[in-house]
Design a protein around this nucleic acid. Structure first.
Lengths: 205, 205
DNA sequence: TCTCTTATTGATCATATGATCTATAAATCG
DNA sequence: CGATTTATAGATCATATGATCAATAAGAGA
């Protein structure tokens, strides 16, 4: 009797620590996005085809693992040259706004991001507030100026108006990934229309 | 030695079953809104000043209790005469819309509702989809017609546009109760401006 | 005031869960 | 190939958790 031929499932594959760690983080992102941050380490391990104890070889605690998940998900989410591009008055404001929300929506209308952002927000993570504060000061506040400048009327937007524009767009992703409602395959039309309505209201189109 | 004087904490108060049940449901709503549906029965019991085992005297399982929470929270959330009031063309469309979102926002911009709706959405509860389907067919779809009729131009809104209006408004509550961001004390100004921008875009003001 | 009903408690069970530690075997190097 | 390193597995621990049930005492009625 020889040992049973190792099947794909039972095969013990020995990876380089860095590679394994990355596989764990990637799997954890997908896993916690599905079931929430209360997901159990045993379930995650099963999904990774790995022992539960292995996780603790790479992360001191579940909390540490979740921090790595945050880092992976939040990293580079908001390209830092947008403030410059949004205020580049050599281009029409409309084009700048559409560019921004085209790229931004591509980034955030993603299952993992959307759900982990929501889960961590509900859990009270400071990270969310920091992220939204950042968004407000780095994107929306400059936009306030740009619109005021581009405006042909004396109407001036308020910060709340920009949050409204933003929220209406983000809500597409919420409907899609949080509530799993049927949504347009390509949201860019809806976004374009929302941006146009917004600019028209301030004669800034 | 007499028995120790029963303090407020240890006092065993005997309530009528209906009253106790209601107290448990109310407490459960607040509790699960805070910590999520994975909240532990022992923590809930402690908050209620009651034994954990008592919960299972009133609810066969934690799942049953959560269903009661859903029922309590979702109940009567959307008054069923809104379809009629929204299509009452004897009044200006703007007034109808503002009335609706004034009342609607008062209902949903509430800590418990907002968070339990989000928690249950993330958990994949069918209830959320049903609720939003209902909202779409009973509120937004009729509005589509109303706007088309009131429009002075040939521009016609699409369903996605109405979801955009709706989402932009709902997002105020999300910022406030999910992300705990500073928000306007009274959202009615922001709502009014959003509605006006929307109607203006279709010359339906 | 006494009795009886039953709302509530306290102890307990079975399982789940995060975490630890030692044994095993896959890769690496001479 | 053989020795060595160490990534991975498997067994296990302490505690947490949903759920059960017999014991207790609060309140209602006689």
């Amino acid at each position: 009797m020889s040992t049973p031929a190792p099947t794909e499932a039972t095969l013990r594959r020995r990876l380089q620590p860095e590679e394994r760690r990355q596989k764990i983080v990637d799997g954890a992102v997908a896993f916690f996005a599905d079931v929430g941050l209360d997901g159990k380490t045993r379930d995650l391990a099963r999904r990774l085809g790995v022992t539960q104890s292995l996780l603790f070889n790479y992360f001191a605690s579940k909390e540490t693992l979740i921090e790595a998940v945050y880092e992976q998900v939040y990293l580079n989410r908001l390209s830092d040259d947008w403030p410059r591009r949004l205020t580049d008055r050599s281009r029409p404001l409309r084009a700048r706004l559409l560019d921004f929300y085209a790229e931004y929506s591509r980034l955030i209308f993603e299952y993992d991001w959307m759900r982990i952002f929501m889960f961590s927000g509900l859990a009270g993570a400071e990270l969310n507030r920091r992220y939204l504060d950042h968004l407000g000061s780095v994107i929306l506040t400059p936009l306030l100026d740009e619109i005021a400048v581009a405006s042909q009327s004396r109407r001036v937007p308020q910060m709340e108006d920009l949050w409204n524009l933003h929220g209406g767009i983000v809500y597409i992703g919420i409907r899609q990934h949080i509530y799993r409602m049927p949504c347009p395959d390509d949201p860019s039309q809806a976004i374009e229309r929302a941006v146009d309505r917004f600019l028209a209201a301030f004669d800034a189109g």
